[in-house]
């Protein structure tokens, strides 16, 4: 290759890559004030007025029969099923048996899982959180993985049915308790910032971001074939959930995997640092909203 041709080619590559970086960051954003937690939806999809409380849900129950507007309920009307028996409840029972049997064989496991407190009651509402000793952000699923690795004969990996089922049980012990992710913790705040960036990052062959379907001005509120994408606010509160279309319990990170496959992007393993950051971002968007498991979606 002649030097001149090589220079042109190199300049071209440089220009292309510079351009590419620019496109990634120029996704139109609707500002989110993280301190507002779930109430930030008021300037976002503005649907929280329909689903933000039981009273609002009752008042707007008629939207359930309105195909063009049912999206405004953010699927929260399905949480009425919490009181009835469904496979999510069986998952909670199974999870309880698992955690009890591991804890009776190895009391250190429960101690680790409950961060030394001995009881798991209400703990999940403060997840994800920064663990100083481990120097990383821990989700409930990551805590189960870590404590099993340290104290049980076999590691209970994130994304495995046992991890999901026991995480569902742990979260059910905080059901009804408002999510309070601690944004005053610097590592959590940084994870939130990274997670927000990932939410807007264009990925995959179809060139979609999470934001392509879940922000004002995107597909949100419009029909995507038979579905209408909803707001990202208040959404993680019901995970892990029993997914009726696939007939199994699904943790948040496997939900990400499913989305990314549909976007024709490379899915990441559950527990991946990027997925954890995305979970922090979405959890802050659920701050102040009660944990709603077991649930059906």
């Amino acid at each position: 290759m002649k030097p001149k041709a090589m220079f042109v080619a190199l300049a071209g590559i440089f220009a292309a890559s510079a351009w590419a970086v620019e496109t990634e960051d120029r996704y139109p954003r609707t500002p989110i004030v993280p301190e507002q937690g779930v109430w930030g939806d008021q300037g976002f999809s503005n649907t929280i007025q329909y689903w933000g409380s039981k009273e609002a849900l009752n008042k707007n129950a008629s939207l359930q029969d309105d195909p063009d507007n049912v999206w405004k309920l953010n699927h929260k009307h399905k949480d009425g099923d919490r009181v009835d028996m469904h496979p999510g409840h069986i998952g909670v029972e199974e999870g309880r048996e698992m955690v009890d049997s591991w804890s009776s064989k190895k009391p250190e496991f429960l101690k680790c899982l409950s961060e030394g407190k001995g009881s798991l009651q209400g703990l999940a509402a403060n997840y994800p959180k920064y663990d100083e000793k481990l120097d990383r952000i821990m989700t409930v699923e990551a805590r189960i993985e870590h404590c099993s690795q340290t104290h049980l004969p076999k590691q209970i990996k994130q994304g495995s049915p046992a991890n999901t089922t026991s995480a569902l049980y742990v979260k059910s012990l905080s059901a009804g308790k408002p999510i309070q992710v601690d944004l005053s913790s610097a590592p959590v705040e940084q994870a939130y910032q990274r997670g927000e960036k990932l939410f807007y990052k264009r990925i995959g062959q179809l060139n979609f971001a999470c934001a392509s379907c879940h922000t004002p001005g995107s597909v949100m509120g419009h029909k995507l074939r038979g579905e209408v994408p909803t707001t990202p606010f208040g959404d993680v509160a019901h995970y892990p959930t029993y997914r009726t279309p696939v007939g199994e319990l699904e943790p948040l990170h496997l939900r990400f995997v499913r989305c990314h496959k549909q976007m024709r992007a490379k899915p990441l393993p559950p527990g991946d640092p990027a997925y954890t950051d995305l979970e922090v971002f979405l959890s802050v968007l659920s701050n102040d909203y009660p944990i709603s498991v077991p649930s059906l979606r």
Binding site: E24, R202, I203, G204, H260, A265, K266, A274
Partner: peptide, 14 residues
């Protein structure tokens, strides 16, 4: 899919 951007901090697609 791996020829296109992904969310990973470590994999090449990231």
């Amino acid at each position: 899919p791996s020829e296109f951007p992904c969310l990973s901090y470590t994999a090449p697609c990231g």
